[in-house]
């Protein structure tokens, strides 16, 4: 009688252990299936040479004039629809930057001449830079900020403001 009970207890323990092991295996498998790959953004920027245009997935389009004396860079190169895009207009670059929004930045170096359009963001006009900023937002939308000469000005929706740093 005792041996029968001992055998029954051993079988019970073994079945419990097996069921726990099976559950662990199932959980780990389901965890592996639900894990989504993180979005990986390509590193680096896009060099836009004179005569070239480039548009990233944030919707920022940069065109460098054919007779420009400087490069533009677009960072990130591709990005996503919500990327914080930074455009650099290097020394003596002339061209256009379209489609900047609230989290984007355009830096204009000495000697550059840049025509910028968008619905938000910041333009840093360094000494010796020129250009204009057009806010294409509808009335009531966000403004674009121009930092120039140690101060800043706002470009309200529907307005265009030329600048000379």
């Amino acid at each position: 009688m005792r041996s029968i009970l001992t055998l029954a207890a051993m079988l019970l323990c073994a079945s419990v252990a097996l069921s726990q092991a099976a559950a662990t295996t199932t959980n780990s498998a389901s965890n592996q299936q639900s894990a989504e790959p993180k979005p990986i953004e390509p590193l680096g920027h896009e060099k836009v040479e004179p005569g070239e245009c480039h548009t990233n997935k944030d919707g920022v389009k940069v065109c460098n004039d054919a007779d420009s004396d400087g490069d533009f860079t677009v960072d990130p190169k591709t990005g996503s629809t919500t990327s914080e895009t930074t455009v650099e207009a290097k020394n003596d670059a002339t061209g256009t930057v379209d489609g900047i929004d609230g989290n984007d930045t355009v830096n204009c170096a000495n000697g550059s001449n840049v025509t910028i359009t968008g619905t938000g963001g910041t333009v840093n006009a360094n000494s010796g830079s020129n250009g204009s900023v057009q806010n294409t937002n509808a009335a009531g939308g966000a403004s674009i900020t121009i930092n120039i000469g140690g101060g800043s000005i706002q470009v309200p929706p529907g307005s265009t403001i030329p600048f000379s740093g």
Binding site: D67, S68, D69, K90, A93, G111
Partner: peptide, 15 residues
Amino acid sequence: RTGAKDWKLYGRTSE
């Protein structure tokens, strides 16, 4: 070069 803006004679860009 700054006055003449003739950088292109010496390189693809002014830099």
